[in-house]
Design a protein around this nucleic acid. Sequence first.
DNA 1: GCGACAG
DNA 2: ATCTTGTCGC
Length: 228
Amino acid sequence: MALDKVNNQKYQMLTREELINIQNNLSRDLIITDLFAKPIRKIGAVDLSFIKDHVIAAYVCVNYENFEIIEKKTALTRLDFPYWPGFLWFREGPPIVKIIKSLDVLPDVFMINAHGLAHPRRFGCASHVGVKIQNPTIGIAGSKLFGEVIKIPRKFGDAEPLKSNHETIGYIIKPKIGQPIYVSPGHMISLESTVKITINCLRNHRLPEPLYLSHRLAESRKIIHSMS
DNA sequence: GCGACAG
DNA sequence: ATCTTGTCGC
């Protein structure tokens, strides 16, 4: 296989089988244990908004103690791969990695708006980003992609496991507002810490605060771009 | 063939 | 994700 083309991010040239090979090969480097600095001081989040064939990546870093904003950043990137369930990395990974690599200071953990372990090959976009940048990531999604729901959490802060072959691959967590969210380890973090950190970041929105803030930043940048 | 299907 | 006004609920 032409690895040079893969590194050039010409993913659209590859077959489904080749894309799966990329995921399976890289997933051998996945680490599902806590490898981040404790106690956590800074937590960052990346979310995207879309304008036709371009994507705005927004990064927000907050103080883990009081959620005060430490840093904000956005970047515009051209899209070259379609949305395809199970292959989100090939569309959203490049812009996410691009903005993270532009940072001078990294947070202790990144929150990514995607699944991590809770993926058909246990290597969702949040995990793929983590392995690529070699930093801790948590995957947080608004709906399920893969896994067996045992029970739906009903009360704020409740967490129910998401399973696959009797193994827990993520958790379903009930926020104060709205439907439950699906969380799973991205990279360099355990299931337990994934759940604990997510619940700690839940405030008065459906998404945990860092992701909520980056989502709003991405949306606000979109309005500015459409005017200029 | 049918249903499921992150953003 | 996105197209979209007023409207229901916390």
